[in-house]
């Protein structure tokens, strides 16, 4: 029993202490406005974990969901949440609002300028 408890504490502690490579300080943002994602296509750097803010300016809740990105999060009306995506390989990753699947968009992961050369 004690071993299992210590294992759980170790896992939590390790996850807390693990440093990750993050993109620039300024977190890119996706906004839900008038039943659309703005921007509809958001470019992020490939190869690093990216902090992403999802804002909902509409009057109804939304659920940002993406099987491509392995992410799902509910955003209250007039609310916002912070999620992390990646590190992503270069490419296009679709997402949608699970409460209104007509609302879709793309995350585009692009190599950093130095990597393109």
């Amino acid at each position: 029993m004690r071993v299992i408890f210590l294992f759980a504490a170790l896992v939590a502690g390790t996850l807390a202490a693990t440093g990750s490579s993050y993109a620039a300080d300024e977190a890119p943002a996706l906004t839900l406005r008038n039943k659309q994602f703005v921007p509809n296509e958001l470019t992020v750097p490939a190869g690093v974990k990216v902090k992403l803010v999802v804002r909902n300016e509409d009057s109804v809740a939304a659920e940002f969901e993406s099987y491509d990105l392995s992410r799902e999060v509910v955003v209250a009306a007039q609310g916002q949440v912070t999620i992390f995506i990646g590190p992503l390989k270069p490419g296009r990753y679709g997402f949608f609002n699970d409460f209104d699947r007509s609302m879709t968009g793309w995350i585009v992961a692009q190599p950093a300028a130095a990597d393109k050369k």
């Binding site: 996850l15 807390a16 693990t18 392995s70 992410r71 799902e72 999620i83 992390f84």
Partner: peptide
């Protein structure tokens, strides 16, 4: 909820 979604390998 202790971590943001996707912050670590698993959400905790």
């Amino acid at each position: 909820q202790l971590t943001d979604v996707g912050e670590y390998w698993a959400d905790i």
